[in-house]
Every structure is written in C-alpha cells, then in structure tokens.
Amino acid sequence: MNGTKPKKVYFYGTCLVDLFFPDAGMAGIQLLRRAGVEVVFPEGQTCCGQPAFNCGYWEEARDVARTQVALFPEDLPVILPSGSCAGMMKVHYPELFHGQPDEAKVRAFSARVYELTQFLVDVLDVKLQDLGEPVKVTWHSSCHAVRDLGLKGEPQALIGQLSNVELAPLAREYECCGFGGTFSVRHPEVSGAMVADKIADATATGASVVLSTDGGCLMNVNGALEAKSSKLKVQHIAEFLWERTRAR
C-alpha cells in the first residue's frame, strides 16, 4: 500500500460467516467504514473453495475459485473476516492455479488478500476506544491465520487497545481446535477429543468469551460449548470489537 491508506476495499464474507455469523461480517464492514474506508461487497460470493482443495478435488475447487476471483476485478485490497479462507485465497490459490492459463491473474488477486485484523492493524493502524463493561476474554488463534498468513499478534493488539478487556492467555493457544473442515466429520472422534480439550483449556482461563478470527473454529468451539451447556460463549473478534466500540 506504499504507506498510504487505501480509500476503498473489497469485502469477502466467506461462506461460514455468510451463513452462520453474518453479524461478524457486518461488524467487520463497520470497522472498516469507521476507519474511513469505503467497502465494496460484490454480489455472487459463495465459497473460497477450500473444502474441495483440501480434499484433493482441485478441479472442482478451481471452478468455484474462478467465479470468486472474477468478482474482484479492481486493484483494491480484498478483506476477509477469516484466517483460513484468507490463507486459501492468498497462499493456496497460487498453488491451485499453478500452470493454469489464468495463473498470473489469480496471483495478482492473491497478492491483494488480507485477513481483517491484519488489515486493521498493519495497514489502517486503527485506534479503538473501549465503551464496554469490564470483561475477561481469551483468544483462540486460528492455525491458518498464524501458519499460512503469518499473523503476528494483530488480533491480540486490537484486544489490547480495549481498556476494559482483560485478555487471559489460553493454554496451548497454538494448538488446533480440531475443526479442519471435513476432518471434523471424517474423523469425528479425534476431532471431538481435540475440541473437548480446547474448551477445557478455554474454560480454565475463567474468561466469559472465547474470541477467534475464523468461522470454522468458531462453529466448532461453539458447538462443543453448547453441547456441554457451558456458560462460556464464542464470538468473532470483529463482532466483539464493533460491539464494544460503537457509539450507542
């Protein structure tokens, strides 16, 4: 971005946020707008193609990915409220399209992709003012946000800006919650054991909310907490940040 803050960005909702966490998507858009950025939300968004890509069905993944890349023709940043979908589009699209006639076009697209918190911190350098009640939260880092995208504490930095929020460290923060897309249904026993341990660690922090930046992790951890009738809630970080900082 050459140091200048972009005035306009694309927003890519991702399928899980679209269907299960639309409030998180709305919040992400509001956070961007409040930072003075115009948000374009192209119609026709479906899925980044990650499930088929991960399962080895690359032709099917490419078919879907192509329709998605075509929605973002202008040279604008593409912002996603999800670490793994951003990882798919930024890191794995070039792999998926390697040797394809439209590889160069896809690579140019991939270079414009950002995960939301990464963009808020590294590009927009947003400043937040906490208007909420005191609360204790914990942070679950998404594997793909950290390992594919190389997030270096951006979400924690945003949470850290909130004066009334205490961030309790989560034991084994960097361990997978067990979602893994189709893994959760192909290997439900192992996946279930992983998420059981994750919610036990999260509960042990004494926090009232688990925050994350990934729809898959949120759905997984939320489902496991609900099944245990836990008081602990999960929330997408965008929704949490927006709720605490918007003027009422």
Binding site: G13, V17, D18, L19, F20, F21, P22, D23, G25, M26, I29, E38, V39, V40, F41, P42, E43, Q45, S184, V185, R186, P188, E189, S191, G192, V195, A196, M219, N220, N222, G223, A224, E226, A227
Partner: peptide, 29 residues
C-alpha cells in the same frame, strides 16, 4: 451425525450476510 457426536448442530442465521448486504443496497458493484 458425526459432527453432533461432540457438538450441537450448527444453525444458520435467519438472514445471510449477502442477503443483509443486498437489503442495505449500497456499495454493490
């Protein structure tokens, strides 16, 4: 069935993000 071994069934939101953005009717291209 495999998912719900350890979790509740995920329930879609009443209106998707796309639907809400369409209703908002701005910034579409």
């Amino acid at each position: 069935r495999n998912w719900t071994q350890s979790r509740t069934k995920p329930v879609p939101a009443r209106r998707s993000l796309s639907e809400r953005m369409r209703a908002e009717g701005v910034s579409h291209e």
